[in-house]
Design a protein around this nucleic acid. Structure first.
Lengths: 168, 168
DNA sequence: CAATACTAATTGCATTTTGCAACCGGTTGC
DNA sequence: GCAACCGGTTGCAAAATGCAATTAGTATTG
């Protein structure tokens, strides 16, 4: 009747899908690190192991959060892309970043992106999500899209500036 | 050196603390259901078992997200309260509720609160968090506090109206 | 054209976490 | 005095996780 769900509460259902220690980190790497291939994701900051990564990618595909396709440039490569459902996880990640930055022992270089995202607020998240729709869904740039460097590029530049200032 | 953390990324650190299937449900019940005692929390919609509940409450206390105190009205009762750190998890829950309501098979009576929270936006979340500071931290009402029924009361009334309309 | 490195995973196995049900000593209200 | 309630604890089975080695096929390099 209910597909084996514990309850029909939206928070509970969300936790049933992404309430583990790895799924949202994979989404984070896809969104902020533009990682699209298995080997790239395997090099996550936190050291995910290959069996867990393979399992989570399968689950995320089944849940409609990402899609999987052959990479035309390399017969053995697989490209993973975010769906609209996956792109809209960004506000959850953003709020987690706000909370983590405020209350947990973050490192400066890994939280500079979170700081910019917090300062930019929902307007910046929205701009970023539009970029992700272009990158992952092949959507056309939205009307009135901002000129200049993309949100992804600005976040990356800020990260690299911190790394450069503080040394490798 | 780093207290055993996988990385200093704010999203990762947040997931290390609340990245499981139960912790945020306990917080949800404390925030939206005003559940403060062990036996109340045990009756969660999803059926948490007592050993898991005891374990998670201990962890949440250790992490500074909730506090534990004797209930003066009953020698054997323990009252759990949210800390400021715990209250500020509300935006994460709210975003999860938005996403879950949009993409997962929620039930109407369990998502009406999420709908009101989404419509009210960050301003309503902020008002709700101020109420929680009064209830859990003994804070004074903020200046210019809204008159009339509290956010908690409004959410509860909306829930009960749906239940009444649709039958038990 | 053979050696090497890279691709997305899979396998086996040990450890950890979860879930279930029964149980516990003490307290409270009737 | 007794049933219901209090916050847990215990024992045990099942599931999830973590690690290291391995796989079969593909691309690059000398």
């Amino acid at each position: 009747m209910d597909g084996g769900h514990r309850s029909g509460c939206p928070i509970n259902l969300t936790l049933e899908v992404v309430g583990d220690k790895w799924s949202l980190l994979i989404i984070r790497d896809m969104i902020f690190g533009n990682r699209r291939h298995f080997r790239e994701m395997l090099k996550s900051e936190e050291g995910i192991s290959s069996n867990i990564l393979a399992d989570r990618l399968k689950t995320l595909v089944d849940e409609g959060i990402i899609t999987k396709a052959d990479d035309p440039s390399h017969k053995q490569k697989t490209v993973y892309s975010l769906t609209e459902k996956g792109i809209e996880l960004l506000p959850i990640l953003a709020q987690m970043a706000v909370w983590g930055r405020k209350y947990l022992p973050v490192t400066e270089e890994l939280s500079i992106r979170a700081q910019l995202l917090e300062e930019g607020g929902p307007a910046l998240w929205s701009e970023f999500m539009d970029e992700l729709r272009e990158t992952h869904l092949g959507a056309a740039p939205r009307n009135g899209a901002r000129q200049g460097p993309s949100v992804a590029a600005r976040l990356q530049a800020a990260y690299e500036a911190v790394v450069a200032r503080r040394g490798v």
